[in-house]
Structures are given as structure tokens and as C-alpha cells.
Computed example of a mutant assay.
Amino acid sequence: MRSDVKHFNCEISGGIARISLNRPERKNPLTFDSYAELRDWFRDLHYADDVKVVVFGPNGGNFCSGGDVHDIIGPLVKMNTKELLRFTRMTGDLVKAMINCGKPIIAAVEGVCAGAGAIIAMASDLRIAAPDAKVAFLFNRVGLAGCDMGACAILPRIIGQGRAAELLYLGRSMSATEGLNWGFFNRMVEAGELEGVATELALRISEGPAFANMMTKTMLNQEWSMSLEQAIEAEAQAQAICMQTEDFNRAYEAFVAKQKPVFEGN
């Protein structure tokens, strides 16, 4: 998996990809270029065996301030409907690429996490917060609907319909404590511990069965649109496939030998 990206930071080591936005002086806003490059990178990730988990972290004390006012918002107000739809589909494709990349994503959120930044955290599989994290789906505050990049579909699944409606109608910030209590964040740690805790969690995931983790991520996202009977059948098929992997056999042999299994992802 390539790490020679231009519009965000990326480091790959030991099965973990650590990425962050690279404009800390402006609280890491997104641009047309960074949107597109992130989308393409996550699309390629689906086919990469050398990455088992992604940590999307902050830079300079902030996660992401959303779309850049001058580089994105300014040009958008001059576009026609066709051009605007091309842009909104492109941003939505980033979320779809994250969901379909086959690798667990951990968002380590510090400071500002607004607009599309809040969406990136939302689209991740696990979220860890520093106490100063402030998550704002602020589309309403700039004259837009809260239904952006899948927010009306995904956010209620995480924190509930009423809480999601409040955030999307008001555009207000959700504090780290609120996010923890509402289930948006899995845990809250001191800012100085954020990177270490995220890395520890990523290591634990990377040591697990990568193919089976991919299947878990797939089922978590696909089963929302299934009936219970469909979901149970889909899981039966998914688990039968996982039972044919070498990792399943490795786990059995390690159990018999009273050892810890070493998974290789196949």
C-alpha cells in the first residue's frame, strides 16, 4: 500500500497505517485534492494485504476543521447543479471507500472535529477522544442540510435518532464527555495518551485474523439493510467461509498446544 501521498500524511509500519491531514496551521481543513486522494487511497486499501488496520489521527492538536472555506466553500457558491452534484458524490465516495476498505479504522480525535471531519470520525469503526475533542456536524450553520455524506443514515445508528437530530438541526458541538456517554466515542483518554492508546488498540486488532476482521466489518455495515433472517443467513455464509481459512486452523492447533495463536491473515 502506497504511503507516498501528497495531500495528507501517511506512514505504514507493522500492518498499521497512520494517517492525518497535513494543514495544522489551519486546523487541518480538507481541500478538493485531499478529498479525492483520501477516497482513492481508501479504495486501494481494499486490495492491500500489508495494512491490517488504519489509525486516522490529529495533527497539531486538531483532527479536521471540515471543508476549507476558501479552497472549497468559495468555489462551490459559483458552481452549477451538475458541478455541485459531482462534488457531493465525490465526498460521499470517500465515506463509501472507508466503509468498503475491508480494514478497521480507528479515529483518534483531538480538538476540532467539524463538518467533513466529523463525518470521517463517524465513518470510522472505533473512535477515541481527547478531553478537548469537539465534534460538530455544522452543515446547518452554513445554510445546508444535515444529510451530508451519509450523516442521516450512520449517525443515528451510533447515538440514536433523537440525539442525531439535535446535532444535525442545531449544528452544535458535541463534547468529548457527551460523545462518550452517547456511545459515539469508545473511550476518552488524556491528550498525551491518545496516540499510545490508539496504537495499542491498532496493534491488538492487527494481531487478529485479518480476513475475519474484514468479514466482521462487511457484515456490520451490510446487515443494517437486511431482515433478521437475511442477516442470520448472511452470517452463516460468512462464518462458513472463515472456517476455511488457515487462521481458523491455526487457532485450533494453538488451542490444542495451549499456545497463543499467531494469525497470518489467510
Rank of each mutant, 00 (worst) to 15 (best):
V55H: 06
P75E: 04
D44G: 14
V54E: 09
N22P: 07
K52G: 13
D33G: 00
G74I: 03
P24G: 07
F56L: 15
G57E: 12
G60M: 10
F32A: 12
I72E: 13
G67S: 13
V54I: 15
D49G: 08
Y47W: 02
F42W: 10
N22C: 11
F63C: 06
V77G: 00
G67R: 03
K27S: 12
S65N: 03
K52S: 12
P24C: 03
V69N: 01
G60T: 13
H46S: 14
T31F: 01
K52I: 07
L38F: 03
P29T: 04
P24W: 00
L38R: 06
G74W: 00
K52Y: 12
V54C: 06
G74R: 07
I73H: 13
D33Q: 14
Y47L: 09
I73D: 11
N28D: 10
P58S: 14
A48P: 04
D40G: 07
P29Q: 03
T31S: 15
R23P: 01
G67F: 10
N22F: 01
V51N: 03
L30C: 08
L45T: 11
V77Y: 01
F42P: 14
I72R: 13
Y47K: 06
V69F: 00
L45Q: 08
D40I: 02
D71Q: 12
G60D: 08
V53P: 12
D44E: 15
I72H: 07
G74F: 00
Y47H: 12
E37T: 10
D33N: 11
V55W: 02
I73N: 14
D50R: 04
V53M: 13
